[in-house]
């Protein structure tokens, strides 16, 4: 039921970095790991809505820039002693192009 939408070229996202995708309903952060995996998660920290896209990426997690919570990119869950979760969305990469399951994202927002 995924409705794949092309959103960027892989090279548009810096390694160990991120880009923000603004949609009508929310901001989605796209992260690229050292091994060129791409994860998409809602750009809101479960703690106090900090913009996760602005954090430091390491392994498959990101450290929130506001109060250092560590969020797992695959599950959207906070790691360590912290508890909380933010939405994640499916992505796929084909020929260096990044696709996002945008329908699911819209559902999550609804």
């Amino acid at each position: 039921m995924s409705n794949w939408t092309e959103i960027a070229k892989l090279e548009d996202i810096p390694r160990l970095g991120s880009r923000v995708l603004t949609t009508d309903t929310m901001n989605i952060a796209l992260f690229r790991t050292a091994t060129d995996e791409v994860f998409a998660i809602r750009d809101e920290c479960p703690h106090k809505q900090g913009p996760l896209s602005q954090g430091i990426v390491h392994g498959t997690s990101v450290t929130c820039p506001l109060h250092n919570w560590k969020i797992d990119l695959a599950s959207g869950e906070a790691l360590g002693p912290d508890e909380g979760c933010t939405n994640t969305f499916e992505t796929k990469i084909e020929d260096g192009r990044v696709f996002l399951a945008l329908a699911a994202a819209n559902e999550a927002a609804a």
């Binding site: 810096p14 880009r19 901001n27």
Partner: peptide
């Protein structure tokens, strides 16, 4: 520039 520009849907 990528640091300061949000992505737009291209597809």
């Amino acid at each position: 520039a990528h640091e300061f520009t949000p992505l737009k849907i291209t597809g």
